[in-house]
Amino acid sequence: MSDRKPYLVMKQVTKIFRSKRTAYHALDSVDLEVRKGEFVSLIGPSGCGKSTLLNIAAGLISPTEGSVWLDGKPVTGPGRDRGMVFQSHALFPWMTVLENIVFALECGKGGAAGRSEEGGWKEEVARRYLERVQLAHAADKRPHEISGGMKQRVGIARAMAVQPKVFLLDEPFGALDALTRSSLQEELVRIWEQDRRTVLMVTHDIEEAIVLSDTIVVMTSGPRAKVREVLSVDIPRPRDKQALLDIPEYRHMKKELLGMLLPKDSAVST
């Protein structure tokens, strides 16, 4: 379903956090490839360096060693070709929902002139993105007036508004309750199916990874975290969460991932 050619590539990425006295070797020679149109989940024990890796892909953190490539060009800093969705939604509280999206549009090449690259007024374009996450009715609300799930949808709409080559999502549903999370997962799939943009998503939720991804990248625990395994999910789409429970492949995969992620090493050592 996706191009064979790697699109987002992380080569031998190492990250050492240094402070005055200490150094923490977080990532050690991580290699990662995401093909165009592919939905890749990054899963691993908490604290292993998933966010660090994603932030390096975003250009917000620079790697100690190694390099990041997107569509054949090196990544040297943050940019609009990568749309970031933060776990803590990171909407500006002093702007309305709509203004948050307009801000994302304004920062583009067209500047604050009102017209956006796609034609049409920025506000109309912003409204269209809100419609795509079914939040047109909340346009004039402030972030603190809407629910956590709605905030995260605005965050997704904001990332879509810059029309990035790849979406980077850092545990986008991590802070939500199970029901909201389920419905947002469905919504994300629905949106993703529309144009199949490339996605790299961090998660700690095994089911979420299986339901959403084409490929699951499992990391080892830190320090010196590496890629432990790359699994491809061969369950046909659309994947219905309830129907999945009856598919042996799903159960098998879940078991395999649980085996990798449960901290059995520590269980032995204690």
Partner: peptide, 15 residues
């Protein structure tokens, strides 16, 4: 995180 958002959107310094 607000500055991170601003950077990923390539907002100019003045903006």
């Amino acid at each position: 995180i607000y500055l991170d958002v601003s950077r990923t959107l390539e907002a100019g310094r003045w903006t």
